[in-house]
């Protein structure tokens, strides 16, 4: 790209404009702490600090230079030369942040919704119009399930939540109280990893199976990082072989890449190590006859039964 050099210089400048204010506001942090907060390597930060000692204002007498230094591996600033406040967000930065927030689908009443309303006020007045125009050019809100922003808040604040959960396997909806640990999306589906107080166990919940959600005021102790995480769906041992008609072959290859094997005649097969039989049944049915499970037999029988039920057969 022709302007990659310019972009890099721009990146460095806006980082430097934040560095002095950051150290002024949080004096005496270690080099590593400052580097982490600003998304830099230790070496990168030390280079930036070196450059800052050359920065000053006319007439450039000794007291006119920024005095930022490292002592006992801690970063301090004595003379900030008016650089002690960072600039406001630009319109593009505001839009990027707003778009990221939109990914979690904020609704009125959520902390995230409140944050977005205030974000616009943090922009310079002249940038607000550009911000609103740009925000319409990036559309992500439709992808978020309804409860995502509220659950994010519960995860961040360690608040217990009560929810009505529908289990596809049993067809039953049940009230649960859970301690939400982590939210993640996998192949277009959002999951909540939580400690379920109703069942006394670590569980994965699909967000599109949650019918009613309430944040309680009950706080819980944050779990250790990575502790008690349920097994991700793709690491299960028992797989199923699914064959797709030639009509879907291009789509399957695009999605599964080298994992999809093309058969003579144009059909493709993939091995699915996802989730459970109830999920597999639904997934195969959602291709409306263009996908067939080849093995195992139990999965074939489950799908035959589900399809039979739709045409009034008791198989």
């Amino acid at each position: 790209m022709a302007d990659a050099g310019r972009t890099q210089a721009h990146e460095r400048l806006r980082r430097l404009l934040l560095l002095v204010p950051y150290v002024s506001k949080h004096p005496g942090l270690t080099v590593d702490e400052v580097a982490k907060a600003l998304g830099l390597t230790r070496e990168g930060l030390l280079e930036d600090l070196d450059l800052l000692t050359l920065v000053g204002r006319p007439p450039f007498s000794p007291d006119d230079y920024v005095d930022v230094y490292v002592e006992d591996d801690r970063v301090w600033v004595d003379l900030d030369q008016r650089l002690s406040t960072p600039p406001r967000l630009t319109a593009a930065e505001g839009v990027a942040l707003a778009a990221a927030a939109a990914l979690l689908g904020p609704r009125p009443g959520d902390a995230l919704h409140g944050a977005l309303a205030k974000l616009e006020q943090v922009l310079p007045k002249g940038a607000r119009e550009q911000y609103r125009a740009l925000a319409q050019r990036l559309d992500l809100a439709a992808d978020a399930p309804p409860d995502l922003a509220a659950l994010s808040q519960a995860v961040v604040e360690h608040r217990e939540v009560a929810l009505d959960y529908f289990t596809a396997g049993t067809g039953v909806t049940e009230r649960r109280v859970v301690q939400p640990h982590e939210l993640f999306s996998h192949r277009g589906t959002w999951y909540l990893s939580a400690h379920c107080l109703t069942r006394g166990d670590e569980r994965l919940f699909r967000l599109d199976r949650i019918a009613k959600l309430e944040l309680t005021e009950q706080r819980f102790e944050a779990p250790a990082k990575g502790a008690g995480r349920p097994v991700p769906p793709e690491s299960r041992e028992q797989g199923a072989r699914v064959r797709f008609s030639p009509k879907l072959s291009a789509w399957v290859q695009e999605r599964f890449g080298a994992a999809a094997s093309v058969l003579p005649g144009g059909a493709v097969e993939v091995e699915i190590r996802d989730d459970n039989e109830a999920w597999l049944t639904r997934w195969v049915l959602s291709f409306g006859g263009e996908a067939v499970v080849v093995a195992p037999e139990s999965a074939r029988a489950a799908i035959a039964k589900a399809a039979g039920a739709a045409i009034g057969l008791e198989s």
Binding site: R14, G39, E93, G94
Partner: peptide, 14 residues
């Protein structure tokens, strides 16, 4: 807009 986002997050860290 990943670079803009990264910078906005650093601001928020401030």
């Amino acid at each position: 807009g990943a670079q803009d986002l990264a910078h906005a997050l650093r601001q928020r860290g401030f």
